[in-house]
Design a binder for these strands. Structure first.
Length: 489
RNA sequence: GCCCCUAUCGUCUAGCGGUCUAGGACGCGGCCCUUUCAAGGCUGAAACCGGGGUUCGAGUCCCCGUAGGGGCACCA
């Protein structure tokens, strides 16, 4: 079995594209087939130069590796459509010669007028197939005038076209609702309809797994296959991904439509692919409590992937659930692995965070962050030379006066300074004892210490943090906080 | 406007004629744990779009509404 993902290099990789690619990838894995990457750059106006590498980087980030593609080649290459123009031109002309397609000489402006006129007369908009009446003699004359032409498919005027979709069953449409679609444009480039179909045939694609938006043009493709006398592939149309507000998620309006949003945002590829498995499909394995397993790899999913079980409804993209899943995956990472993935985010924040320190920080923040990027906010102070001098209001906990807080900090300073070893256990023993002697709750005692030492009211566990910072800095910061709370005479 | 697809908790979904007083997850509420924040444990509220059929029996099949989505380019 051979499947392909065939994006257009018109910008960032779309999250819906990732899901489509992933379903293709899983299908290939499940059936021991090949997953092919093909680039559909037949629109000269929209093609962007760097988009190709961006798409490949995105797929690699997601771990969706292809067996044949533009960079690695393969037996059916080339895998970039702009390098395959001769094929499309040959087959377009073949259709004309066999009476399955025809030349049409209308300009885009003329087409617009035709469409508008039809609309005005209560007819469906589109082309009225007038060029079907042209003879080869007419073509010669118009060619002599230097008029450019397109090649259009001769769609049957009557009857209906039916195809079997593996996720939706039979889909049928009346042929008179179809257009004589353009196959070859005036610039000699093919349209999607021609190019993808010729390539799918030549590349021996067995299953076309693509987004739902292609359903309306699939009958056209079936007619094209019939015109060629080729065996059509199996069609599998997967639901589109919707924005929570409804409607297709688009790169233009929604930043989260691009995969780079997730890469930069601190999402793990494991979480993103895991999440994508459950939008439009369901892993469905149960754990020992009879609950569905939520956290699984795409390899595990591929082992049981069944394209016929793909959902038929458009699905909203719930970033909140993705975040939860991302947290789950972060917690499953080893300290070393997490440290390595965290480093670029500290770098991006202009903080020098050595790996050997990050390895120690990792277990402290692992269950406190949902995104890698949140680590900077949570633990960035560990890598800054100093923290801001706290405000008195931030220092004083609920239930204590300024004077009580000052006394508490004083006691903390003394207790910590007196410790023979600045270990976590020693700190904890001393400080718990301190709270008892002060007659206040540990929470009330630790709060001002936390603010003084970390500059934050929320932080990783206090003793671990203080051990990392070191006694000297901790005492200095405590002293400074005590000074802040000194009553003004 | 025309064509196509779809319809279970707020969201993602399980269900493929009886085992459904409809299951799970996220989110939300409560309780517990607790040095903050989390994480974790227990627990609660929350859905079969409406109407007709078919059938002994319908969330599950059919039809009609309605709603949502997609498509109608010399873009993919």
């Amino acid at each position: 079995m051979r499947v392909r993902f065939a994006p257009s290099p018109t910008g960032d990789l779309h999250i819906g594209g990732v899901r489509t690619a992933q379903f293709n990838w899983m299908f290939a894995r499940r059936h021991g087939g090949k997953f092919i990457l093909r680039i559909e750059d037949t629109d000269q106006k929209r093609t962007q130069e760097q988009s190709l590498s961006g798409i490949m980087d995105g797929l690699r980030w997601a771990g969706l590796h292809w067996d044949e593609g533009p960079d690695i080649g393969g037996p059916y290459g080339p895998y970039i459509q702009s390098q395959r123009l001769a094929h499309y031109q040959y087959w377009a002309n073949w259709l004309v010669e066999h009476g399955k397609a025809y030349r049409a000489y209308e300009t885009p402006e003329e087409l617009e007028l035709i469409s508008a006129a039809r609309k005005a007369n209560g007819l469906p908009p589109g082309y009225d197939r007038r060029a079907r009446a042209l003879t080869p003699a007419d073509w010669a004359r118009l060619d002599a005038e230097g008029k450019p032409y397109v090649i259009r498919l001769k769609v049957p005027l009557e009857g209906e076209t039916v195809f079997e979709d593996m996720v939706r069953g039979a889909i049928r449409v009346r042929n008179d609702t179809l257009q004589d679609a353009v196959l070859l444009k005036a610039d000699g480039f093919p349209t999607y309809h021609l190019a993808h179909l010729v390539d799918d045939h030549l590349m021996e694609i067995s299953h076309v797994i693509r987004a739902e938006e292609w359903i309306p043009s699939t009958p056209l493709h079936v007619i094209l296959y019939q015109a060629f006398g080729w065996q059509p592939p199996q069609f599998c149309h997967v639901p589109v991904i919707l924005h929570p507000s409804g409607g297709k998620i688009s790169k233009r309006k929604h930043p989260e439509a691009s995969i780079s949003y997730f890469i930069k945002g601190g999402y793990l590829p494991e979480a993103v692919t895991n999440f994508l498995c459950n939008v439009g499909w369901n892993y469905g394995k149960l754990d020992e409590n009879g609950e569905e397993i939520q956290v699984f790899t795409k390899e595990e999913a591929a082992a049981v992937f069944d394209i016929t079980q793909v959902t038929q409804t458009g699905t909203k993209f719930d970033v909140v659930k993705l975040k939860w899943l991302n947290g789950e995956w972060i917690r499953r990472l080893s300290d070393e692995d997490l440290a390595r993935r965290l480093q670029p985010f500290f770098e991006a924040a202009a903080l020098e965070a050595p790996l050997e320190v990050l390895v120690q920080v990792a277990p402290l923040i692992k269950e406190r962050i949902k995104l890698l990027s949140e680590a900077v906010e949570m633990a960035g102070f560990l890598f800054r030379p100093d923290v801001p001098t706290p405000e008195p209001s931030a220092l004083i906990p609920k239930g204590l006066t300024a004077e009580q807080t000052r006394a508490a900090l004083q006691l903390a300073h003394e207790a910590l300074a007196a410790l023979p070893d600045f270990t976590i256990a020693a700190q904890e023993a001393a400080l718990r004892d301190g709270a008892e002697r002060l007659g206040i709750k540990t929470g009330q005692f630790f709060s001002p210490i936390r603010v003084a030492v970390t500059g934050q009211s929320v932080s990783p566990p206090l003793f671990e943090v203080m051990a990392l910072i070191g006694r000297e800095k901790v005492l200095a910061r405590l002293a400074r906080a005590i000074a802040v709370l000194q009553p003004t005479p």
